[in-house]
Design a protein around this nucleic acid. Structure first.
Length: 872
RNA sequence: GCGGACGUGGCGGAACUGGUAGACGCAAGGGACUUAAAAUCCCUCGACCUCCGGUCGUACGGGUUCGAUUCCCGUCGUCCGCACCA
């Protein structure tokens, strides 16, 4: 019987309504079943959903639906990371209010997400720009202030002198402002910080327990926190070279053992010593000014050519009063790390070596590989950074570097400069405090007031929220809050005198550092409902892009600790399981007038060569490299178009097929069509046989052809369950294909009325298993199939089937048989055959006999249930 | 610059803890059905050779092992992050 093709346009909205009507995905906090919290990183409402979102939310939805079927009470919420710069850019460019722009985008994107058929609890939705949300964030901020977790200090920003505004790193292009083109300056501003460094040690050691996180993310965080054990060494400034009032230079080093290899000192451009030296040295002042025009990002600074300038100041070597070294200002020394000053040992550090070679400074090797010859060992272009033995280091010669480290630490601790010890041991972290001040409008206001008499005063809790004013102008650059008189001017809560509000708003990373906690009770008037948050957290499975591997995740870990300290919850680690998914990439197409959208291009294969043409004109288009989808290269695909023409299930299936979820996936038209063919094929397979299948009782079989069907179905069922549990969706997809392929012939037999009763029962059971397995991935199709099979209720409410352990072990096992490590054939033998029986049977095989040519094998290796290797 | 990853057929990938390399899908080629097309179904599909068999083959060069895509050392290439993008 010919059946209708599956029509997702009709079926998908129908089932979405059916799920909604029964409120299947609205989660109750008092549900007694075991909990499971699955969360995808919430989106920034940029305007439209992009295909990366489709991938991210599909994965989360598969996990949510799978866990629900496994009997968990699943929390799967969605919200919006809604503050941030693009809203202000839109305001400036198109004269729309950031608030209107943001909420319109949210409305559009919510509608798009709903067409995907995601099993989300929309009743818990919120946006971080909702007053209700940032009100609670301000409460948290004040609690953090009370606990001493907040501080103010000076920090650098990128300053655009023409637009008179602070620039984000991404707004600085080749050292110039993106709009004005003016050379960017570094400016010092007093800003708000969260004292994340108080938790540096804890954030580091706790990584060890996050064993459901990718190892690479833990390594990245470890390196980011950057714990090192070293020495603070105070070098005395040489008489006559020191600027007035200065007598020493304090450096931090992890390699005090190389102190006899030192040939120069280098300080950051912002180091006090550099500033003093520049006062009567115009060339040095110009150099420092030059460094200040490079922007503030570490990447820019470190990728730049290494440059320095001698200050004329010299320091005295701690172990030789007659040895003095020059002090340079260098552009690669960062004021934020250590003391902003280093001693350079060219032979033991590549950067120092490059610097020394450039400025003609001495290079003395002080560590050489064990067994080397000290008389001839030299360093020219490549520093020696490994372990070894000390040379050219007087009393340290012959020691291992570690012993030399200890020796130097001990000796210098007993000497003094000024009246402090010359050296002390110090654990240092690369991690800096988290600067949360942003000189922007569209963010959570920092609830503080500046009073001339009382200083910085918190906004009283009763006066919260500090709401963003709606009547603002973006006709001028800079922060509109700075020029909003009625908002800006308030009375000091302490003394009542006229005072000013803080006009900085919070980094949007603050918003995303606790949203996962808010989802557990978004209606609560306090930031959290302690019972709910403690029950739901940690998030069992968090899914998002690897680009958040460091900052967002580290900030969230800190925030959770800070919330514990302030009594809002009782745990330290917010995310138990973490999965970082790859990007969606696409070919680029370049026509005569620039980049072209994939939707406007037709790709054909002619004589084995792929060619692209514009659909409209037939003009030839160049096929470019495969790249991350971006608006500038136009290699974007609109999920709306895909869902409109193929349906959500096809898009979902494609996102899960082929590519491992943590790797990039290449979006191709052919791949989407393949996914769509699968959807149609499953529908055809089931719908054609449905009239016959509907009346059959599912019954697994153990023997004969029917037994083979049941065995395969149960093996695949087990594998797919395991794979989804591990988020190995591409493997689960492959297994499901296998089951569909395998069911093709037996289902046809049933349709033709030629199948035995056993076969009918086995196939019906296998079909039920198939429907259950596709349900998390293509939920609408599963419902449609289930309805055709006259199944009761909704698939979305059904339990995941249990496999029968008896059906997944075979009594016969096929051993590959190798001779000298090369496979020569197979051996089929009873599963319970012991090692010697397997060995004997293998040696009796004719291809083994032939390969041995009558000789006795030297060794026979039998790996039970795996392989036989005969070593001749 | 620093840090992290990745590299397997024409393509995406699979291969458990060191145990049959290429599952599954895409593309391609051939055939069936059709007046024709689409859809569907069947077959072939890493390279090479003396082709019912065999040799080589997982970026490249070494090493460990009975056995290496997997472990170790080195080289090359590609991608990502770097604190005010989210």
């Amino acid at each position: 019987m010919a059946t209708e093709r599956y029509n997702p346009r009709a079926a998908e909205p129908k089932w979405q309504k059916a799920w909604d009507a029964r409120k299947l995905f609205e989660t109750k906090n008092d549900d007694p079943r075991p909990k499971y919290y699955v969360l995808e990183m919430f989106p920034y409402p940029s305007g439209r959903i992009h295909i990366g979102h489709v991938r991210n939310y599909t994965m989360g939805d598969v996990v949510a639906r799978f866990r629900r079927a496994r009997g968990f009470n699943v929390l799967h919420p969605m919200g919006w990371d809604a503050f941030g710069m693009p809203a202000e850019n839109a305001a400036m460019q198109n004269n729309v209010h950031p608030k209107d722009w943001t909420y319109q985008n949210i409305a559009t994107m919510r509608g798009q997400l709903k067409t995907m058929g995601l099993s989300l609890d929309w009743s818990r939705e919120f946006a971080t720009c909702d007053v209700d949300y940032y009100h609670r964030q301000q409460m948290l901020f004040l609690d953090f202030v009370d606990k001493g977790l907040v501080t103010r200090k000076s920090s650098k920003v990128n300053w655009d002198p023409v637009d008179m505004t602070v620039l984000a790193n991404e707004q600085v292009i080749d050292g110039r402002g993106w709009r004005s083109g003016a050379l960017v300056e570094q400016r010092e501003l007093t800003q708000w910080f969260f004292k994340i460094t108080d938790y540096a040690e804890d954030l580091l050691v706790s990584l060890d327990e996050l064993n459901e996180w990718p190892e690479k993310v833990r390594i990245m965080q470890r390196n980011w926190i950057g714990r090192s054990e070293g020495l603070l060494i105070r070098w005395e400034l040489a008489q006559g070279t020191a600027p007035e009032g200065e007598s020493e230079l304090e450096v931090y080093t992890t390699r005090p053992d190389t102190i006899f290899g030192a040939s120069f000192m280098a300080v950051a451009a912002d180091h006090p010593l550099a500033k003093k030296a520049a006062q009567n040295n115009p060339a040095l002042a110009a150099f420092i000014d030059d460094v200040h025009h490079m922007g503030t990002s570490v990447a820019t600074l470190e990728a730049a050519e290494k440059k320095g300038m001698d200050t004329g100041i010299r320091v005295v070597h701690p172990f030789d009063p007659n040895w003095t070294l020059p002090v340079y200002v260098a552009n690669f020394v960062l004021m934020d790390y250590g003391t902003g000053a280093i001693f350079g040992c060219p032979s033991g550090d590549q950067r120092d070596l490059d610097f020394a070679n450039k400025y003609g400074l001495p290079v003395v090797p002080v560590v050489m590989p064990e067994g080397g010859d000290a008389a001839t060992f030299q360093i020219t272009d490549e520093a020696y950074v490994d372990d070894g033995v000390m040379i050219n280091s007087r009393f340290l010669d012959g020691m291992k570097p570690q012993a030399a480290f200890d020796e130097v630490a001990k000796l210098l601790a007993d000497r003094t400069v000024g009246n402090r010890p010359m050296a002390e041991r110090k654990v240092n972290f690369r991690l800096r405090d988290w600067g949360i001040s942003r000189q922007r409008y569209w963010g959570c206001p920092i609830p503080m007031i500046h009073c001339e008499d009382c200083g910085v005063v918190p906004v009283p809790r009763a006066d919260l929220p500090v709401k963003l004013p709606d009547d603002i102008e973006f006709d001028r650059p800079g922060n509109p809050l700075d020029r909003h008189p009625t908002w800006l001017n308030v009375n000091c809560p302490k003394c009542g005198k006229a005072a000013r509000r803080e006009t900085d708003t919070m980094d949007t990373f603050v918003d995303s550092s606790w949203y996962f906690a808010r989802f557990t009770a978004p209606w609560e008037s306090e930031p959290t409902d302690r019972k709910a948050v403690n029950e739901w957290l940690p998030v069992d499975q968090y899914i998002g892009g690897v680009e958040h591997a460091i900052l967002h995740l580290l900030y969230s870990r800190f925030f959770t600790r800070a919330m514990r300290e302030t009594g809002h919850l009782d745990l330290a680690e917010p995310f138990k399981g973490l999965f970082t998914q790859g990007m969606v990439v696409h070919e680029t197409y370049k026509g005569p007038d620039g980049w072209v959208l994939p939707a406007d291009v037709k790709v054909e294969e002619i004589d084995g060569k792929r060619q692209a043409r514009l659909i409209a004109t037939g003009e030839k288009v160049e096929i470019g490299s495969i790249e991350k989808m971006s608006k500038s290269k136009k290699n974007v695909v609109d999920p709306d178009d895909i869902i409109a023409s193929y349906g959500a299930d096809t898009a979902r299936w494609f996102m899960l097929s082929d590519s491992p979820p943590d790797r990039d996936v290449i979006w191709t038209e052919a791949g989407v069509e393949g996914a769509h063919r699968f959807v149609q094929r499953v529908w055809r397979l089931i719908s054609e046989a449905a009239p016959a299948l509907a009346a059959i009782k599912p019954q697994a079989q153990g023997a004969g052809d029917a037994g083979a069907v049941s065995r395969s179905a149960h093996k695949i069922l087990k594998a797919v369950g395991d794979d989804i549990g591990k988020l190995a969706f591409n493997r689960a997809v492959a297994r499901i294909y296998e089951l569909v392929n395998l069911l093709q012939a037996p289902v046809a037999e049933i349709t033709a009325g030629k199948a035995s009763a056993e076969m009918q029962g086995a196939v019906r059971e296998a079909v039920d298993i198939l429907v259950a397995m596709i349900a998390p991935m293509t939920p609408h199709l599963a419902e449609e199939c289930w309805e055709a099979l006259k199944g009761s209720g909704l698939v979305a409410e059904r339990a995941w089937p249990d496999f029968d352990p008896a059906l997944i072990v075979d009594d016969q096992i096929v051993y590959p048989v190798q001779v000298n490590g090369k496979k020569r054939g197979d051996l089929t033998i009873a599963r319970d055959a012991d090692q010697s029986a397997v060995e004997k049977a293998a040696l009796d095989l004719d291809f083994v006999q032939k390969a041995l040519e009558g000789k006795t094998p030297r060794k026979v290796i039998v790996v039970p249930q795996r392989i036989v290797n005969v070593v001749a």
